[in-house]
């Protein structure tokens, strides 16, 4: 499949190394970010930063190492959709836990 072939060769070794360096920097950044108390800005800031960095790293791995960037829409849909479903599970579970004790049956 020569046409397939050229499609995948959007990446070359310097680009792979570049993505790799981004991931390394992300790892180091997430470590040091965790040691700084950012919660003084607003509660949960540390968690937010850690997750943002993790999401960024994941995005780079998926787009370039897993070639999603050049894949069909269905693959994009699968990648995004699975996280959307995770979000459903998280959100609808937490909407219970975070609203416990607000209101009672006895009224």
């Amino acid at each position: 499949m020569s046409d397939n072939n050229s499609e995948h060769l959007h990446m070359n070794i310097p680009k792979y190394i570049g993505i790799f360096m981004i991931l390394v920097v992300g790892t180091i950044a997430t470590y040091f970010a965790a040691t700084v108390d950012m919660d003084r800005f607003f509660p949960g800031a540390n968690t937010l930063v850690a997750l943002l960095i993790a999401f960024t790293k994941m995005t780079f791995v998926m787009l370039f190492f897993m070639h999603v960037y050049w894949s069909k829409r269905l693959i994009w849909l699968a990648a995004v959709g699975s996280f959307f479903w995770l979000a459903i599970m998280f959100a609808y579970t937490m909407q219970d836990y975070l609203t416990r004790g607000s209101g009672t049956f006895s009224g």
Partner: peptide, 14 residues
């Protein structure tokens, strides 16, 4: 799915 849990102690809001 929470409609299976109306009386199992989940919050009223949920």
């Amino acid at each position: 799915w929470g409609h299976h849990m109306f009386v199992s102690g989940q919050s009223i809001y949920a």
